[in-house]
C-alpha cells in the first residue's frame, strides 16, 4: 500500500503528444464517495502494477447522466451526455474502462445514439483480460480457502450479460466461491438502481438492501464481493444492520485483487 499512485490526465497525455492505452472513467462515486474512492485507488494500483498506460479525464469528467435519465430527466441526461461525448471525441478516445456498472452501461449502450461510440469495459473484464495476458498475477494466498460470495450488479449482469468475468477473477484468488440463492440472471438488486441511490425508498415493509444482505449473509461468507460502488454501499449498510461488519467484509473485486497482491 506504500507506493504512490501514478496517474496522468488525458490533457497531460495530449500535451505530451502521447496516446494512452485506455481511459479510466472514474465516475462520480469513484471520485467523491469515501468508500468508492478506495475502490478507485485499488484499481489504479492494479493498473500501475500491470504497467497499463492509462489516463483519466480529471476535472473534465462529469456525471454520465445515468441517474438523471433514470429519474425521468431526459434533458439533463442529454446535456451531460453531449458534453461528455464532445470531450471524449475531442481526445479521440477509443477505449474506456470504468469500475461503475452504471457508467459502463451508459457509456457503452446509450452514448452511441448521441455520437459517442467506444469500446467500453467494466473493470472486472479489464482485470480478467490483464490476468489472461499475464500482465498481472495473483501472488500469495491471502484469500486461499476463504468463503467469498459475489453479488451480481444488475447493470453488469442482467443488463449487459456479463456474469463470468467477475467470477473468473475471483477464482484466481483460490478462494471458495459460494453462489447466492438468487444469482446471475436471477440476482436480486441491491436497491440502489434507477436513481434510488439518490432518494428515500418508497414505503414498504423493509429495505431492498436488507433483503439482499440477509441472503448474502445466509451464505456465511467471509467476504461479499461487489463490482459496483452503489451495491457496495448498500451491502455495507446491510451487513451493519445485522451487526456483522466484524466478521463479513464487503469488498470490490479490484480491492480483493489489490489486497491479494499486497498492492
Amino acid at each position: 500500500m506504500s507506493q504512490s499512485l501514478s496517474i496522468r490526465t488525458m490533457a497531460e497525455f495530449a500535451a505530451a503528444g502521447e496516446v494512452p492505452e485506455v481511459l479510466f472513467w472514474v465516475g462520480c462515486a469513484g471520485s467523491f464517495d469515501d468508500r468508492a474512492k478506495k475502490i478507485t485507488k485499488a484499481f489504479v494500483r492494479i493498473l500501475n502494477a500491470a504497467k497499463v498506460k492509462f489516463a483519466i479525464l480529471g476535472q473534465e469528467e462529469t456525471c454520465t447522466g445515468d441517474p438523471a435519465r433514470r429519474a425521468g430527466n431526459e434533458f439533463l441526461f442529454q446535456m451531460q451526455a453531449l458534453q461528455n461525448v464532445t470531450v471524449l471525441n475531442g481526445y479521440g478516445v477509443k477505449r474506456i474502462v470504468t469500475a461503475c456498472p452504471h457508467c459502463f452501461n451508459t457509456l457503452k449502450n446509450e452514448y452511441p445514439a448521441l455520437g459517442g461510440t467506444y469500446e467500453v469495459l467494466h473493470h472486472t473484464q479489464f482485470i480478467n483480460a490483464l490476468m489472461k495476458e499475464g500482465r498481472i498475477k495473483v501472488e500469495g494466498g491471502s484469500f486461499k480457502g476463504k468463503r467469498i460470495t459475489f453479488h451480481d450488479p444488475c447493470y453488469l449482469g442482467r443488463g449487459n450479460n456479463e456474469y463470468e468475468a467477475p467470477r473468473e477473477v475471483l477464482l484466481k484468488l483460490d478462494a471458495a466461491l459460494v453462489e447466492l440463492k438468487r444469482s446471475k440472471q436471477n440476482g436480486l438488486c441491491c436497491g440502489a438502481g434507477g436513481a434510488q441511490m439518490f432518494k428515500e425508498a418508497e414505503p414498504g415493509t423493509r429495505e431492498v438492501n436488507i433483503e439482499r444482505s440477509e441472503e448474502a449473509l445466509a451464505a456465511e461468507p467471509q467476504v461479499i464481493a461487489a463490482g459496483c460502488p452503489f451495491c457496495n454501499t448498500m451491502l455495507t449498510d446491510g451487513v451493519k444492520h445485522f451487526n456483522k461488519e466484524g466478521e463479513v467484509k464487503v469488498m470490490d473485486i479490484a480491492e480483493l485483487i489489490a489486497a491479494a497482491n499486497d498492492l
Binding site: C28, S31, F198
Partner: peptide, 16 residues
Amino acid sequence: ALTGMFNNVENNGAPW
C-alpha cells in the same frame, strides 16, 4: 431528493 440530485448534476456535474 431527486430535485436535489438534478440540481447537483446540473451545477456540479455530479449527483452530489
